[in-house]
Amino acid sequence: MTLNGVKSPPTPHRITLCTENQEDKPKVKVEVKNFQKPTIAPKARRKLNNNRLHILEEPLAGNNHKLTDYFPVRRSVRKTKTTVLEEKQRCLEKALRNNVEDGLKICYFEDKGRGVVAEKPFSKGEFVVEYSGDLIDIPEAKKREEMYAMDQNTGCYMYYFKHNNQQYCIDATPESDRLGRLVNHSRNGNLQTRTISVDGKPRLVLIAKENIQIGEEILYDYGDRSKESLKHHPWLAN
């Protein structure tokens, strides 16, 4: 067959080659057709291996609506709102499990003692620090509070909160290397508290309420407005 392309006068011998070639022609044609439409070529080849796919392509004839008539084609790989939220949640859980407290430092203030200052900017909604301590129930909290009340020097580190309709308390009274317990109070602070379940246990996190700049002290509202507390801690009114 390769001889066929050679330009030389036809001989009887060549003629036989030619007829052979003619027999082959339909086969060659199919191949050519495939090459003309490179996009279908791999499918067409697969069709030979797999009859079922062959059936699939036939009634394309257009008596069926297409899914693209109903659903928009997404050009970019944008994530849906739920996946974004899920990812955020997972990120937060990971930070909590690893006790992440990045971008913060302890500062000493003349008037109120220790406080925590941002060393990197935090954007609104970002996790800043966990209020970590012992997670205890209310009766236990009452017991501990009575104990702490005996010593005038202990500060107030008991955080009461509700999670899934149940009251809890985080007691961060004992000195630790965690920063959450050192964040000071302000009625209009730049953080807000949120509870979140990690591995079945409620955790208390402080989230940026607004964009926080480097060097800004981080503050949140302790939420205690009771007369008794105000009498002992007048700064709660600030």
């Binding site: 791999p42 499918k43 697969r46 796919l53 699939l56 392509e57 394309l60 069926n64 609506h65 297409k66 899914l67 693209t68 659903f71 996946t83 899920e86 990812e87 997972r90």
Partner: peptide
Amino acid sequence: NEASFDCSESGIQLQAMDISHVSL
């Protein structure tokens, strides 16, 4: 015939239409 498996922290996802674009 072929499909992209998108792997992320949330798991393995796949979304693909058949050749005819009638089903997904």
